[in-house]
Design a protein around this nucleic acid. Structure first.
Lengths: 335, 335
DNA sequence: CTGAAAGCGCTTACAG
DNA sequence: CTGAAAGCGCTTACAG
């Protein structure tokens, strides 16, 4: 005599079908041996009642939550958002449900959510963004999810159960510099509109490119803020400081879009006078006049790789703790 | 003698603290009466073990999953993505976890996920996007979540447990037309780069505005595709067809950004010759030269309202089944 | 092929 | 203030 509650349980179904709860469970889970006749009767009653098995109960007894946690710091970053999309689609296709949390950039919030995920006994975690590569997160994982596979997209964190998938932005920027050299550009510069783990990598790639393909030349690197005015000023200053500049790599497509406007105002022709490249390969590079070359840092591939690798681990396979994904240059009219 | 498994349970804690599981439970949940001394001892052991109570078990016995389902068809729509963000933040702040699913535009997939959510016994659902306003979804809710409060953002669906929160885009566009009239514009046009439930509303708003503020004038409405070339052509054609046009409302900011470029090429000065407005109030309106006026359809407010209303219902309050949110015009240099 | 029973990890009257 | 017991809705040996 269970279920004095509202929702219908397998006991209700069992009673109505004149079988035991065990049999109902077997039918629901397509387990082994149930006489065809019985199976059909149960199935019918199941459908008639629109029966929905309680996942919490199932998870409790089988010790498998079939749940994956996704952590992301903020949605404003479009690439990260797409990341969730790929991860969720891939995991859902394999029978997992995704518990998602927006952590903000506050590291103790991140830790709090990791703890929260551990309460749901998630079978895996995907964290999207280099911002999760911090000590609070590391400690929280150590304490609350010491054995759960955790994937970090675009950042490094060293632990036996943490796996990192990273886009090779550094190498990508170096390749961009090489392309510039091949096209005969003499004085490339790189401009940033913000400082982050990612911008640091890009800057390193740029410096490496300069020392390799422009030996002896000093790397021209400048930073500013994200508004249109700041970008305009930075571009203007660049040419006052170094008028011979004939190529600019912008740290982000949106910055490149603004920068191209300013180059136009300065009377610089693209690509004749100045070659331009952006990073991210977003819609901005397509709506710009001219359309500009952009480094595709394949962030969706990063997420997709994380999802697939997690699935592999969940299926008992082994996976490398550090996966570096190549970027690719999408050439357009600006170089 | 429980817990032959891996994870530590309240029984382990109880044993170590020399109390009963009941007492441990009371401490964890800050329930009523536990002697201060006992409480402290238990708390200490809890912390020492990094104890994480099993949410599935808690939910099973309390019949409350503390879980909310979020359904979204695709992330590519930035506004919707922000929607999830607001919903998740708000609900998390109130102790709920969010189960998220990307459904694609396939209505039977939507139905499948609704069923999936019912297995987790979610206490509420938020669906983001008018695309969920279809019969498959309605039937699935009727069958699997007949009593769970469901919020639909930007669409209508009629059922006792379904609540709709909608941005008044129609009224907003009408207001935009009024603004144009007030500024002395004589021949406004409206251009669209896609057909959707939303564009239909906007067009209706435009037509209403024209018949009210430009009595006798025929509403100039044209459609094209999303590429830069198509938008360019549409703008060019507009002036061939109706050279006296002195104001254009674009159905989306990104389209306005492209359109402004083309107006420039045509030698039209903004706002002197042609006034321009976009819709969505996104970053595009800020990076454009000139910055343009945009109708903020407050999609984040739609989501936030859905989240707050859901919370209200969860707390036993009553909420209107249909909430219409006013839009607001953000004026910039283009009118 | 099928059922009775135990148990997953919790909470909550109930009794003391 | 505290513990024993029952039960949430399932699954899974075990026995037949």
């Amino acid at each position: 005599m269970r279920h004095k509650s509202g929702s219908v349980t397998i006991y209700d179904i069992a009673k109505e079908a004149g079988v035991s709860a065990s049999t109902v469970s077997r039918v629901i889970n397509n387990k082994s041996t149930v006489k065809e006749e019985t199976r059909e009767r149960v199935l019918e009653i199941l459908k008639k009642n629109s029966f929905s098995p309680n996942e919490a109960a199932r998870g409790l007894v089988t010790r498998s939550s079939r749940m994956i946690g996704i952590l992301i710091s903020d949605v404003r970053t479009v690439q990260h958002t797409e990341g969730i999309y790929f991860v969720e689609r891939e995991l859902a296709a394999n029978g997992y449900s995704c518990l998602i949390h927006y952590t903000t950039k506050n590291t103790s919030e991140m830790a709090r959510y990791i703890r929260e995920l551990s309460r749901w006994k998630v079978e895996g975690v995907v964290m999207i963004g280099s911002i999760f590569a911090n000590e609070d997160v590391l400690n929280a994982i150590e304490e609350y999810l010491p054995k759960t596979p955790v994937f970090l997209c675009n950042g490094y964190l060293k632990r036996p159960n943490i796996y990192c998938v990273v886009s090779d932005e550094k190498g990508g920027v170096t390749n961009l510099v090489r392309l510039l050299a091949e096209k005969g550009r003499k004085h490339p510069a790189m401009l940033f509109n913000q400082i982050s783990a990612s911008s640091t990598e890009k800057e390193r790639g740029f410096r490496e490119g300069i020392s390799t393909y422009y030996p002896g030349q000093e790397a021209m690197v400048r930073y500013c803020g994200t508004t249109r005015e700041e970008v305009d000023e930075l571009v203007r200053n660049l040419f006052e400081e170094k008028p011979e500049t004939d190529a600019i790599i912008f740290s982000e497509d949106i910055m490149a879009l603004m920068g191209i406007r300013m180059l136009n105002d300065l009377g610089k022709k693209i690509p004749e006078d100045v070659a331009v490249a952006g990073i991210n390969n977003m819609v901005f590079s397509e709506i710009s006049i001219p359309r500009f070359t952009s480094l595709d840092n394949v962030l969706h591939t990063v997420s997709a790789t994380a999802a697939n690798s997690l699935l592999a681990i969940l299926n008992g396979k082994r996976v490398s703790h550090k996966i570096l994904l190549p970027t690719r240059i999408v050439e357009r009219e600006s170089i």
